[in-house]
Design a protein around this nucleic acid. Structure first.
Lengths: 223, 223
DNA sequence: CTATTATTAAACGAATTCATTGAATAACAA
DNA sequence: TTGTTATTCAATGAATTCGTTTAATAATAG
């Protein structure tokens, strides 16, 4: 094999990882899997895709080695094969934010609130939590909370938020987080809380990024 | 715009960055641009591609915002738009190494030497350089060396290596580096040097990773 | 055993990607 | 002006990707 061929072939291999993340639906799946294991039908529901199509994308991700599959009973549970994938998603996000005007247009348009809703950096949340100054709420679905969350956070899925308003302190800031910086759950939660007169802010990004940055987490035993 | 549409559209935008790095030829171009500015024809030569094809890929990268173009005289010089792209390439590389057997097969096959040629970690090189224990050679083409290199490294393009053998110390280790961990220039240099009886090793990766890690570099003034 | 559920496979057409070819453009030189 | 060089554009066809539809498989329940 010539050096020329080697170079081409090795870059073609790297490109296989690129191909895996070259499709928006697959990126959605990866973000969901970053919250924890999920089976095919659940993933299909959450992405509003047909089961067959979801399965096809998952096969694709599996062949790139980005996800693992394990059969438990009748279900096939998929999971990320490596924490590094959270880094990959983060870099893609940052580069898209920096380089694609379209991204900022979308954010402005859908999340108009962005300006007066400056998100809270991770490090700041750690400090305030230590000082006992905040209530942290995890607004993801219960199953995702169960498979891992920020210590001290209470789980209130967005759909349940209305029922729990009376439990929140009015003299303390409430910090909401969800799946990631562009997941709309926390945005919506903060909006609801603010409309009701609470002091609410959004964490700068979601649980996977928190965990990935080495900060402490509460997880149920693996298995 | 519904939250559902927002989610899909934002992930489609992130996927544009993925698409940009979903092709081996474009990854080659990005690695070359990580060494410094280059014009279209040079890039075409270095990748063994037609000029038109190279230009097309560069347009593609430009539309994803990963590279910038600036016309100087008759030439259009392309450059990386952000240092983060070096991180992106590194993550792709790591994930490919970890997850694709094919990558390791290729390495074994082409770079059989891998085992008895354990590469030198960056931190170790810093230490040994401080202690004056090593000679560092940069085996990239002169232009790439000129636009930035490791302090104290001397530039000996691979093609010139034979002419300079007499200049090397026989009592000191020689460390060679080039464009990146899979660039074959340093591999070949180390092989040549070892065959001639020198103590030679390869740096774990190349100049872009060195610079990106925050270690000191010697660069000519920007422009 | 048959029915049901969860997932994958196979086949299809529309859309996109990719390298090639040849022509267009733009800047400069003779 | 004409010619030359560097780059981009436009058109082509082969290959690949993507979502849909329909069928197959495999595990469990009745």
């Amino acid at each position: 094999m010539s050096s020329h061929n080697f170079k081409q072939e090795i870059f073609d291999q790297f490109a296989r990882i690129g191909k895996a993340v070259s499709n928006g639906r697959r990126l959605e799946l990866l973000e969901l899997l970053a919250q924890g294991k999920h089976n095919v039908e659940t993933l299909a529901d959450m992405c509003s895709m047909s089961v067959a199509n979801t399965s096809q994308h998952l096969q694709n991700l599996r062949q790139s080695g980005l996800v693992n599959a394990s059969k438990i009973g009748q279900h096939v549970f998929y999971s990320l094969s490596s924490d590094r994938i959270v880094d990959l998603l983060a870099v893609l996000r940052e580069l898209a934010e920096d380089n694609l005007n379209e991204v900022n247009r979308l954010i402005q348009q859908y999340l108009q609130v962005k300006d007066d809703l400056e998100p809270l950096p991770r490090a700041d949340l750690v400090q305030r939590a230590e000082d006992g100054l905040v209530t942290i709420i995890d607004v993801r679905p219960g199953l995702e909370y169960d498979s891992g969350h920020i210590p001290g956070a209470i789980n209130i899925p967005l759909s349940e938020l209305d029922k729990h308003l009376s439990e929140f302190p009015t003299d303390q800031e409430i910090v909401a987080y969800c799946r990631g910086p562009y997941c709309v759950l926390a945005f919506d939660a903060v909006k609801t809380l603010r409309d009701k007169g609470f002091q609410a802010r959004r964490l700068e990004d979601g649980y996977p990024e928190w965990k990935r940055s080495g900060l402490p987490v509460e997880e149920k035993m693996p298995g």
